[in-house]
Design a protein around this nucleic acid. Structure first.
Lengths: 168, 168
DNA sequence: ACTGAAACTCTAGGAGA
DNA sequence: TCTCCTAGAGTTTCAGT
Protein backbone atom coordinates (compact mmCIF):
# COMPACT_ATOMS: atom_id res chain seq x y z
CA UNK A 1 0.00 0.00 0.00
CA UNK A 2 1.47 3.29 -0.96
CA UNK A 3 0.88 6.96 -0.61
CA UNK A 4 -2.43 7.30 -2.41
CA UNK A 5 -4.07 4.36 -0.64
CA UNK A 6 -2.88 5.73 2.66
CA UNK A 7 -4.36 9.12 1.80
CA UNK A 8 -7.64 7.47 0.91
CA UNK A 9 -7.78 5.50 4.14
CA UNK A 10 -6.81 8.53 6.19
CA UNK A 11 -9.53 10.62 4.57
CA UNK A 12 -12.15 7.94 5.11
CA UNK A 13 -11.27 7.42 8.77
CA UNK A 14 -11.77 11.14 9.28
CA UNK A 15 -14.99 11.30 7.24
CA UNK A 16 -16.56 7.99 6.36
CA UNK A 17 -19.19 9.55 4.11
CA UNK A 18 -16.81 11.35 1.79
CA UNK A 19 -17.99 10.94 -1.80
CA UNK A 20 -15.70 9.38 -4.37
CA UNK A 21 -15.79 12.71 -6.16
CA UNK A 22 -14.38 14.57 -3.16
CA UNK A 23 -11.94 11.76 -2.46
CA UNK A 24 -10.74 11.86 -6.06
CA UNK A 25 -10.09 15.57 -5.80
CA UNK A 26 -8.21 15.10 -2.54
CA UNK A 27 -5.84 12.46 -3.83
CA UNK A 28 -5.52 13.71 -7.40
CA UNK A 29 -6.95 10.79 -9.32
CA UNK A 30 -10.05 10.24 -11.42
CA UNK A 31 -13.24 9.22 -9.71
CA UNK A 32 -13.12 5.73 -11.21
CA UNK A 33 -9.57 5.12 -10.09
CA UNK A 34 -10.43 6.11 -6.54
CA UNK A 35 -13.54 4.01 -6.63
CA UNK A 36 -11.50 1.01 -7.73
CA UNK A 37 -8.94 1.57 -4.99
CA UNK A 38 -11.59 1.87 -2.29
CA UNK A 39 -13.18 -1.37 -3.45
CA UNK A 40 -9.83 -3.12 -3.26
CA UNK A 41 -9.10 -1.68 0.17
CA UNK A 42 -12.46 -3.01 1.33
CA UNK A 43 -11.86 -6.41 -0.22
CA UNK A 44 -8.39 -6.70 1.27
CA UNK A 45 -9.82 -5.89 4.68
CA UNK A 46 -7.88 -2.68 5.11
CA UNK A 47 -11.22 -0.91 5.34
CA UNK A 48 -13.46 -3.06 7.49
CA UNK A 49 -16.64 -1.05 7.31
CA UNK A 50 -18.23 2.26 8.07
CA UNK A 51 -20.03 3.49 11.14
CA UNK A 52 -21.81 6.55 12.41
CA UNK A 53 -20.32 7.86 15.64
CA UNK A 54 -22.98 8.55 18.17
CA UNK A 55 -23.15 10.45 21.41
CA UNK A 56 -23.56 7.70 24.00
CA UNK A 57 -25.24 10.21 26.27
CA UNK A 58 -27.77 10.94 23.57
CA UNK A 59 -28.65 7.28 23.11
CA UNK A 60 -29.07 6.90 26.85
CA UNK A 61 -25.85 4.99 27.61
CA UNK A 62 -24.13 7.66 29.70
CA UNK A 63 -22.13 5.27 31.88
CA UNK A 64 -19.00 3.64 30.48
CA UNK A 65 -16.69 1.35 32.41
CA UNK A 66 -13.66 -0.85 31.95
CA UNK A 67 -14.12 -4.33 33.31
CA UNK A 68 -11.00 -6.42 33.83
CA UNK A 69 -11.81 -10.11 34.04
CA UNK A 70 -9.99 -13.17 35.29
CA UNK A 71 -11.22 -16.75 35.37
CA UNK A 72 -12.27 -18.31 38.63
CA UNK A 73 -10.51 -21.43 37.54
CA UNK A 74 -7.52 -20.71 35.29
CA UNK A 75 -7.24 -24.34 34.28
CA UNK A 76 -10.60 -24.24 32.48
CA UNK A 77 -10.68 -23.61 28.72
CA UNK A 78 -10.65 -19.88 28.15
CA UNK A 79 -13.50 -18.87 25.87
CA UNK A 80 -14.69 -15.75 27.64
CA UNK A 81 -14.95 -13.58 24.50
CA UNK A 82 -17.39 -15.97 22.83
CA UNK A 83 -19.32 -16.47 26.03
CA UNK A 84 -19.75 -12.72 26.40
CA UNK A 85 -20.25 -11.75 22.77
CA UNK A 86 -24.02 -11.82 23.05
CA UNK A 87 -24.10 -9.03 25.60
CA UNK A 88 -24.75 -5.83 23.64
CA UNK A 89 -23.51 -3.66 26.49
CA UNK A 90 -19.98 -4.83 25.73
CA UNK A 91 -18.46 -2.38 23.28
CA UNK A 92 -15.01 -3.95 23.06
CA UNK A 93 -13.10 -6.96 24.31
CA UNK A 94 -9.30 -6.96 24.52
CA UNK A 95 -7.08 -9.86 25.43
CA UNK A 96 -4.33 -8.35 27.52
CA UNK A 97 -0.96 -9.12 29.04
CA UNK A 98 -0.68 -8.68 32.79
CA UNK A 99 -2.64 -9.97 35.72
CA UNK A 100 -6.00 -9.87 34.00
CA UNK A 101 -7.03 -11.98 31.05
CA UNK A 102 -9.36 -9.60 29.26
CA UNK A 103 -10.30 -6.00 29.44
CA UNK A 104 -13.85 -5.10 28.45
CA UNK A 105 -15.25 -1.70 27.64
CA UNK A 106 -18.94 -1.58 28.50
CA UNK A 107 -21.71 1.03 28.11
CA UNK A 108 -24.82 1.14 30.26
CA UNK A 109 -27.64 3.47 31.19
CA UNK A 110 -27.15 3.49 34.95
CA UNK A 111 -25.21 2.09 37.93
CA UNK A 112 -28.02 -0.41 38.43
CA UNK A 113 -27.56 -1.64 34.87
CA UNK A 114 -23.82 -1.88 35.44
CA UNK A 115 -24.41 -4.02 38.49
CA UNK A 116 -26.71 -6.33 36.55
CA UNK A 117 -24.22 -6.50 33.69
CA UNK A 118 -21.34 -7.43 35.98
CA UNK A 119 -23.38 -10.28 37.42
CA UNK A 120 -24.16 -11.50 33.93
CA UNK A 121 -20.51 -11.31 32.94
CA UNK A 122 -19.42 -13.26 36.02
CA UNK A 123 -21.91 -16.03 35.53
CA UNK A 124 -21.70 -16.25 31.74
CA UNK A 125 -17.91 -16.52 31.63
CA UNK A 126 -17.16 -17.84 35.12
CA UNK A 127 -14.84 -14.98 35.92
CA UNK A 128 -14.12 -12.40 38.58
CA UNK A 129 -14.38 -8.75 37.62
CA UNK A 130 -12.55 -5.58 38.58
CA UNK A 131 -14.34 -2.51 37.33
CA UNK A 132 -13.08 0.97 36.63
CA UNK A 133 -15.78 3.55 36.01
CA UNK A 134 -15.23 6.18 33.31
CA UNK A 135 -15.93 9.65 34.66
CA UNK A 136 -15.56 11.50 31.39
CA UNK A 137 -14.10 10.98 27.96
CA UNK A 138 -11.87 13.84 26.78
CA UNK A 139 -11.52 12.08 23.43
CA UNK A 140 -12.22 8.70 21.94
CA UNK A 141 -11.64 6.77 18.71
CA UNK A 142 -9.60 9.42 17.05
CA UNK A 143 -8.55 8.69 13.49
CA UNK A 144 -5.09 7.10 13.48
CA UNK A 145 -2.13 8.78 11.89
CA UNK A 146 -1.50 6.64 8.85
CA UNK A 147 2.05 6.72 7.66
CA UNK A 148 5.05 4.63 6.91
CA UNK A 149 5.61 2.62 3.80
CA UNK A 150 3.37 -0.37 4.13
CA UNK A 151 5.73 -3.30 4.24
CA UNK A 152 5.16 -6.73 2.74
CA UNK A 153 4.78 -7.83 6.36
CA UNK A 154 1.90 -5.43 6.90
CA UNK A 155 0.33 -6.36 3.57
CA UNK A 156 0.21 -10.03 4.40
CA UNK A 157 -1.22 -9.20 7.80
CA UNK A 158 -3.94 -7.19 6.10
CA UNK A 159 -4.64 -10.05 3.71
CA UNK A 160 -4.78 -12.50 6.58
CA UNK A 161 -7.40 -10.38 8.28
CA UNK A 162 -9.57 -10.30 5.17
CA UNK A 163 -11.24 -13.24 3.45
CA UNK A 164 -8.61 -15.74 2.43
CA UNK A 165 -9.44 -15.67 -1.26
CA UNK A 166 -8.36 -12.19 -2.31
CA UNK A 167 -5.93 -11.85 -5.15
CA UNK A 168 -2.66 -10.12 -4.37
CA UNK B 1 -36.13 10.85 20.47
CA UNK B 2 -38.53 8.13 19.61
CA UNK B 3 -38.67 4.87 17.83
CA UNK B 4 -37.92 5.96 14.29
CA UNK B 5 -34.97 8.12 15.24
CA UNK B 6 -33.59 5.26 17.29
CA UNK B 7 -33.98 2.92 14.35
CA UNK B 8 -32.15 5.38 12.12
CA UNK B 9 -29.29 5.80 14.57
CA UNK B 10 -29.04 2.07 15.09
CA UNK B 11 -28.91 1.43 11.36
CA UNK B 12 -26.23 4.05 10.81
CA UNK B 13 -24.02 2.82 13.64
CA UNK B 14 -24.09 -0.59 11.99
CA UNK B 15 -23.54 0.76 8.47
CA UNK B 16 -22.47 4.36 8.23
CA UNK B 17 -22.77 4.43 4.45
CA UNK B 18 -26.40 3.32 4.22
CA UNK B 19 -28.21 5.36 1.59
CA UNK B 20 -31.25 7.42 2.51
CA UNK B 21 -33.19 5.22 0.15
CA UNK B 22 -32.32 2.06 2.07
CA UNK B 23 -32.78 3.82 5.38
CA UNK B 24 -36.22 5.02 4.31
CA UNK B 25 -37.23 1.49 3.41
CA UNK B 26 -35.94 0.19 6.74
CA UNK B 27 -37.88 2.65 8.88
CA UNK B 28 -40.98 2.97 6.71
CA UNK B 29 -40.83 6.62 5.79
CA UNK B 30 -40.25 8.57 2.61
CA UNK B 31 -36.70 9.39 1.58
CA UNK B 32 -37.22 13.09 2.31
CA UNK B 33 -38.52 12.46 5.79
CA UNK B 34 -35.55 10.26 6.65
CA UNK B 35 -33.16 12.78 5.19
CA UNK B 36 -34.65 15.49 7.35
CA UNK B 37 -34.41 13.34 10.47
CA UNK B 38 -30.78 12.45 9.83
CA UNK B 39 -29.93 16.12 9.38
CA UNK B 40 -31.59 16.94 12.69
CA UNK B 41 -29.84 14.07 14.46
CA UNK B 42 -26.54 15.40 13.17
CA UNK B 43 -27.35 18.95 14.20
CA UNK B 44 -28.42 17.92 17.68
CA UNK B 45 -25.17 16.01 18.11
CA UNK B 46 -26.79 12.62 18.44
CA UNK B 47 -24.83 11.60 15.34
CA UNK B 48 -21.35 13.05 15.73
CA UNK B 49 -19.88 11.97 12.44
CA UNK B 50 -18.98 9.04 10.29
CA UNK B 51 -15.79 7.02 10.08
CA UNK B 52 -14.33 4.15 8.14
CA UNK B 53 -13.19 1.32 10.39
CA UNK B 54 -9.72 0.23 9.47
CA UNK B 55 -7.61 -2.78 10.25
CA UNK B 56 -4.88 -1.38 12.49
CA UNK B 57 -2.65 -4.19 11.38
CA UNK B 58 -3.12 -3.16 7.79
CA UNK B 59 -2.16 0.43 8.47
CA UNK B 60 0.93 -0.75 10.29
CA UNK B 61 -0.22 -0.07 13.86
CA UNK B 62 -0.34 -3.68 15.07
CA UNK B 63 0.48 -2.93 18.70
CA UNK B 64 -2.25 -1.54 20.95
CA UNK B 65 -1.85 -0.85 24.66
CA UNK B 66 -3.68 0.65 27.58
CA UNK B 67 -1.67 3.22 29.46
CA UNK B 68 -2.87 4.19 32.92
CA UNK B 69 -1.43 7.51 34.02
CA UNK B 70 -1.04 9.27 37.34
CA UNK B 71 0.57 12.65 38.01
CA UNK B 72 3.99 12.80 39.63
CA UNK B 73 2.69 15.66 41.70
CA UNK B 74 -1.03 15.36 42.41
CA UNK B 75 -1.20 18.97 43.63
CA UNK B 76 -0.39 20.32 40.17
CA UNK B 77 -3.23 21.40 37.86
CA UNK B 78 -4.44 18.38 35.98
CA UNK B 79 -4.49 19.07 32.27
CA UNK B 80 -3.09 15.80 30.98
CA UNK B 81 -5.70 15.31 28.21
CA UNK B 82 -4.86 18.63 26.57
CA UNK B 83 -1.14 18.10 27.02
CA UNK B 84 -1.37 14.73 25.31
CA UNK B 85 -3.92 15.53 22.62
CA UNK B 86 -1.26 16.27 20.03
CA UNK B 87 0.09 12.72 20.11
CA UNK B 88 -1.60 10.90 17.24
CA UNK B 89 -0.75 7.49 18.71
CA UNK B 90 -3.36 8.12 21.40
CA UNK B 91 -6.64 6.72 20.17
CA UNK B 92 -8.72 7.49 23.25
CA UNK B 93 -8.41 9.20 26.61
CA UNK B 94 -10.71 8.31 29.50
CA UNK B 95 -10.87 10.02 32.86
CA UNK B 96 -11.41 7.21 35.34
CA UNK B 97 -12.32 6.54 38.93
CA UNK B 98 -9.87 4.47 40.91
CA UNK B 99 -6.16 4.75 41.58
CA UNK B 100 -5.27 6.11 38.16
CA UNK B 101 -6.32 9.45 36.76
CA UNK B 102 -6.62 8.60 33.09
CA UNK B 103 -6.63 5.56 30.93
CA UNK B 104 -5.26 5.94 27.42
CA UNK B 105 -5.65 3.58 24.51
CA UNK B 106 -2.65 3.86 22.21
CA UNK B 107 -1.70 2.31 18.87
CA UNK B 108 1.86 1.96 17.66
CA UNK B 109 3.90 0.08 15.07
CA UNK B 110 6.34 -1.66 17.38
CA UNK B 111 7.56 -2.10 20.96
CA UNK B 112 10.27 0.45 20.23
CA UNK B 113 7.61 2.98 19.26
CA UNK B 114 5.67 2.17 22.40
CA UNK B 115 8.75 2.86 24.49
CA UNK B 116 9.26 6.20 22.77
CA UNK B 117 5.59 7.08 23.17
CA UNK B 118 5.61 6.30 26.90
CA UNK B 119 8.58 8.60 27.38
CA UNK B 120 6.77 11.33 25.50
CA UNK B 121 3.64 10.84 27.58
CA UNK B 122 5.60 11.01 30.82
CA UNK B 123 7.45 14.17 29.93
CA UNK B 124 4.55 15.93 28.20
CA UNK B 125 2.07 15.43 31.04
CA UNK B 126 4.43 14.95 33.99
CA UNK B 127 2.93 11.60 34.88
CA UNK B 128 3.90 8.05 35.69
CA UNK B 129 2.60 5.30 33.44
CA UNK B 130 1.45 1.73 33.90
CA UNK B 131 1.06 -0.07 30.62
CA UNK B 132 -1.01 -3.09 29.67
CA UNK B 133 -0.25 -4.52 26.26
CA UNK B 134 -3.13 -5.78 24.13
CA UNK B 135 -2.42 -9.28 22.82
CA UNK B 136 -5.44 -9.56 20.57
CA UNK B 137 -8.80 -7.94 20.06
CA UNK B 138 -11.70 -10.40 19.85
CA UNK B 139 -14.03 -7.47 19.11
CA UNK B 140 -13.96 -3.72 19.25
CA UNK B 141 -16.30 -0.76 18.82
CA UNK B 142 -19.41 -2.81 18.34
CA UNK B 143 -22.56 -0.87 17.54
CA UNK B 144 -24.48 -0.16 20.75
CA UNK B 145 -27.93 -1.53 21.39
CA UNK B 146 -30.10 1.52 21.17
CA UNK B 147 -33.28 1.27 23.12
CA UNK B 148 -35.33 2.89 25.82
CA UNK B 149 -37.49 5.91 25.46
CA UNK B 150 -35.17 8.84 25.17
CA UNK B 151 -36.04 10.97 28.15
CA UNK B 152 -35.99 14.75 28.36
CA UNK B 153 -32.88 14.18 30.48
CA UNK B 154 -31.14 12.37 27.68
CA UNK B 155 -32.26 14.98 25.16
CA UNK B 156 -30.78 17.85 27.09
CA UNK B 157 -27.60 15.85 27.51
CA UNK B 158 -27.45 15.39 23.76
CA UNK B 159 -28.09 19.07 23.19
CA UNK B 160 -25.40 20.00 25.68
CA UNK B 161 -22.91 17.88 23.81
CA UNK B 162 -23.79 19.56 20.50
CA UNK B 163 -23.40 23.24 19.66
CA UNK B 164 -25.26 25.27 22.24
CA UNK B 165 -27.54 26.97 19.76
CA UNK B 166 -29.73 24.15 18.54
CA UNK B 167 -33.46 24.56 18.70
CA UNK B 168 -35.34 22.08 20.88
C1' DA C 1 -43.84 16.46 10.16
C1' DC C 2 -44.50 13.76 5.99
C1' DT C 3 -45.19 13.04 0.77
C1' DG C 4 -44.11 13.51 -3.97
C1' DA C 5 -41.66 15.26 -7.75
C1' DA C 6 -37.86 17.62 -10.26
C1' DA C 7 -33.02 18.85 -10.91
C1' DC C 8 -28.83 17.67 -9.95
C1' DT C 9 -24.83 14.81 -8.33
C1' DC C 10 -22.78 10.55 -7.49
C1' DT C 11 -21.98 5.63 -8.26
C1' DA C 12 -20.74 1.74 -10.70
C1' DG C 13 -18.96 -0.58 -14.34
C1' DG C 14 -17.40 -1.20 -19.23
C1' DA C 15 -14.07 0.14 -23.10
C1' DG C 16 -9.68 1.59 -24.27
C1' DA C 17 -4.72 3.03 -23.52
C1' DT D 1 -3.87 0.95 -13.15
C1' DC D 2 -5.35 4.81 -15.10
C1' DT D 3 -8.89 7.92 -17.84
C1' DC D 4 -13.06 8.63 -20.20
C1' DC D 5 -17.80 7.71 -20.77
C1' DT D 6 -22.69 6.43 -19.79
C1' DA D 7 -26.77 4.54 -17.54
C1' DG D 8 -28.84 4.13 -13.51
C1' DA D 9 -29.21 5.33 -8.44
C1' DG D 10 -29.07 8.35 -4.89
C1' DT D 11 -29.28 13.13 -2.96
C1' DT D 12 -31.18 17.41 -2.10
C1' DT D 13 -34.54 20.78 -2.20
C1' DC D 14 -39.05 22.72 -2.71
C1' DA D 15 -43.97 23.08 -2.96
C1' DG D 16 -47.97 21.12 -1.06
C1' DT D 17 -50.77 18.81 2.60
Amino acid sequence: MEEIDRAIVAALTADGRLSYTDLAEKVGLSVSAVHQRVRRLEQRGVIRGYAARVSFEAVDLPLSAFVAIRPFDPSQPDDAPERLAHLPEIDSCYSVAGEDFYLLLVRVASPADLERLLQEIRTAANVTTRTTVVLSTPYENRPPKINGELSARARSRAAGEAAGSTAG
